[in-house]
Design a protein around this nucleic acid. Structure first.
Length: 723
DNA sequence: TTCGCGCTTCTTTTT
DNA sequence: GAAGCGCGAA
């Protein structure tokens, strides 16, 4: 979005900025300066209409979009007499972050049974809670693997969604218990943030003067509800979006948002038809993929035709593409101006291998969160339980973890934690002693020390917090004696330690910046990291770094590049095989989004031999939808394409395939070798007699006893003798 | 408890 | 077009 050079707005943009109606919907076509209009609208309201920024709520879907708006606004006013301060922008952010801020600062969550210190949890965690509720209450749930989707349906779809509830299915009971349990543990999911904010906003008298919404076509039912709850009698609405870029309806974006809003608020509907991004030919071709050929005009020259290429298979294509990109770069085109789009994440692998091989810098758009790094996942759970001992679930995970925790079973950990909590309650503030009965003494090794540290954290942290924020990370590591849990013997020790330190350092910095008290600040940080991810760990695509960007068509939305390659336009991939007409439509919009990312050069390719099941060989039907006079090439004959350097490619292919196998294998190999080495080991136990070791790792040992059966022990407590 | 039958899903992902 | 599940039959 580099439209800052256009200081002069076109007539359509002006009309949108100056529109005086109470509700205004702007149908913003691709590349038509949507964000510019949004910013100008805010400035117009602020400067000309004397609306205070703190009386506006500006809602986006992604943090990236919210940041962009905030930054541009600060930039625009930086030279003026009164630059925008951060506190004026409390209502600027994603739907979820604004809901969080409202619940924490402006609304009385206590009415809903929560405290002001509530935690935000990720979807997986809700599922974990649900699963433990199922086993605790012995609920009968069908389609357990689809529990997540079914719960979502049950929670949102109120009563009408209950279509296939069999005779013995406790789903609705589970939903109720889950709601209660989350309240008890003081936890809200992303969905709950919106739902709870809505419930409280309904009663609220004070309403914002203006609500401004970006990418409004992606709103789901709850986000529409939130807009509605924020609307007061005198509140005005300004929403910008593009019905042609609806590519997320499969994850719940509401049907026909534009129509709904228009009738609900009698909104004026305007449009921004002028595309500033793409060359004339690219735009002309893209227009064929609009449902109704609406007004969409360009201002640029025709430019280059769209190149259509045929490749034998993904290997040959990767080879061709990396050579082509290297050649472009040698002609002075920066790598960062080039992007390759594909339909499925799995398609990136071959490209990555080939580009790495040829030394082309690339970045793959993949979301990486704390959850993907085991040691940090463990650390976060440890901190959560330490801050909120009611979060038994987290505590159990910490103790059970085989790598970093004590490796005890869920049952043991659960009983142990409950005993610990009881003792803590009995003894007041000092945390549990946990000496007690035989059962507990048996466990009072690693698990006991760790549990004691966690349960005592809120009271004993004071003794550690004198030193100030600089060495926050060191103090936390010292308090929990983390080095012992990270296991110096692990191959990943150094990396793990570094990750832990990094995360704690970010936490420390956050606390410092917010000027919060340490315990409260840690809680806040955990909440915001659930909502915003953690930038340093998140492998985000940096447009600044000079590398080729590889991403799915979905991930390309909102971006633009000079050179765009869309690969795998074969039926079964683009478009993906779909069941319904609606999904088919969405595939077309998705392709439209991809095409319109290209500013100057667009190249589309198909495989003769896709090499994936369910993908048809031959050009996909979308290629026929582009008129002949707009495209060039159409493809070298499949035989010819494969013939050039076939032997070399075959070898390359074999090599790459071998490498991929190697990458996936180690886990399997490790386990099998362990099993083999221990399969003949005989042991004897006082109570259970002789047996054979079935499985063994650093903490646990599983023994099949000759006359007792299978039993699992913690190595440090089991008194096994080898025979 | 186990077998076969029919049915659904699989992919895309932000907060 | 395969894999996973529920469900009824044995």
């Amino acid at each position: 979005m580099t439209i800052s050079k256009i200081k002069e707005l076109n007539e359509y943009q002006k009309a949108a900025v100056q529109n005086e109606s109470r509700a205004c919907l702007v149908n913003a076509n691709v590349g038509s300066g949507k964000t510019t209009v949004l910013i100008e609208k805010i400035l117009h309201l602020h400067n000309k209409k004397n609306i205070r920024l703190q009386d506006m709520v500006v809602l986006t879907f992604t943090n990236k979009a919210a940041d962009e708006i905030r930054e541009r606004l600060k930039g625009e006013t930086a030279e003026s007499s009164e630059p925008v301060g951060s506190d004026e922008l409390w209502g600027f952010g994603t739907f979820h972050s604004v809901a969080l801020r409202l619940l924490k600062e402006k609304l009385s969550v206590e009415e809903l049974g929560y405290t002001k210190d509530f935690f935000v949890i990720e979807p997986d965690e809700e599922l974990e809670i649900a699963e433990s509720l199922i086993s605790e209450n012995k609920l009968k749930i069908k389609y357990k693997n689809r529990l997540k989707k079914r719960l979502e349906e049950e929670m949102s779809g109120s009563s009408q969604g209950r279509r296939k509830t069999g005779p013995q299915d406790d789903l609705s009971e589970l939903a109720g218990l889950l709601r209660e349990e989350k309240r008890r543990q003081d936890k809200m999911t992303f969905q709950d943030l919106l739902a709870n904010a809505c419930a409280l906003l309904r009663k609220e008298r004070r309403k914002p003067a203006w609500i401004i919404v970006d990418e409004v076509q992606d709103c789901d039912e709850w986000q529409l509800e939130m807009i509605d709850c924020l609307m007061g009698e005198k509140t005005c609405l300004f929403a910008v979006g593009d019905p042609n870029q609806v590519i997320y309806s499969w994850r719940g974006s509401a049907f026909q948002v534009f129509y709904t809003l228009k009738t609900k608020y009698q909104a004026d509907e305007l449009s921004l038809p002028v595309n500033y991004r793409s060359g004339g030919i690219i735009l002309e071709a893209a227009r064929r993929f609009l449902q109704s050929s609406q007004e969409l005009t360009g201002v640029r020259e025709a430019g280059e035709k769209i190149a259509v290429r045929n490749h034998y298979d993904p290997f040959q294509e990767a080879d061709y593409l990396s050579d082509k990109i290297a050649e472009l770069n040698s002609r002075g085109i920066p790598y960062s101006d080039i992007a390759v789009f594909y339909r499925l994440q799995s398609q990136s692998g071959i490209l990555e291998d080939m580009m790495a091989r040829k030394g082309i810098p690339y970045e793959v758009s993949l979301k990486k969160t704390i959850k993907d790094i085991p040691v940090l996942n463990w650390l976060v759970k440890l901190l959560r339980f330490s801050l909120n001992p009611r979060d038994v679930q987290a505590g159990v995970c910490v103790l059970c973890d085989r790598d970093y925790g004590a490796g005890i079973t869920v049952k043991e950990a659960d009983r142990y934690i409950r005993a610990g909590l009881e003792e803590a309650a009995d003894q007041g503030l000092d945390g549990p002693v946990l000496a007690g009965t035989g059962e507990e003494r048996k466990l009072s090794g690693k698990a006991g020390i760790l549990l004691k540290a966690m349960l005592g954290f809120r009271n004993r942290w004071k003794e550690y917090s004198k030193a100030g924020p600089e060495d926050f990370a060191d103090r936390v590591m010292e308090y929990f004696d983390l080095d012992t849990y990270l296991r110096p013997s692990f191959a990943s020790f150094a990396a793990d330690r570094e990750s832990v330190r990094e995360l704690l350092k970010i936490t420390g910095d956050y606390i410092c910046e917010e000027g919060a008290e340490e315990l409260a600040g840690m809680g806040e940080f955990l909440n915001s990291s659930a909502l915003y991810g953690i930038n340093i760990l998140k492998k985000e695509i940096h447009s600044e770094t000079d590398s080729v960007k590889l991403m799915t068509l979905h991930a390309s939305k909102g971006l633009e590049f000079s050179y765009v390659f869309i690969i795998g336009v074969n039926y079964g991939l683009i478009p993906l095989r779909t069941k319904s007409f609606e999904e088919e439509e969405e595939e077309r919009r998705l392709f439209f989004v991809g095409m319109t990312r290209a500013k100057d050069h667009l190249e589309i390719s198909w495989y003769t031999s896709p090499g994936q099941p369910n993908v048809m060989p031959g050009p996909g039907r979308y290629l026929n939808m582009i008129p002949a006079h707009l495209k060039e090439g159409g493809g070298i004959g499949p035989g010819q394409a494969a013939a050039s350097g076939e032997v070399r490619l075959q070898e390359l292919k074999r090599e790459i395939l071998k490498n991929r196998e190697k990458k996936e294998e180690p886990n399997i190999k490790e386990e099998s070798s362990k099993e083999e080495s221990s399969s003949t080991k005989r042991v004897s136990h006082k109570k259970y007699g002789p047996g054979t070791v079935e499985k063994e790792d650093d903490t646990m040992i599983t023994v099949l006893f000759d006359d007792y059966g299978r039993k699992e022990f913690m190595k440090m407590f089991s008194e096994l003798e080898s025979i």
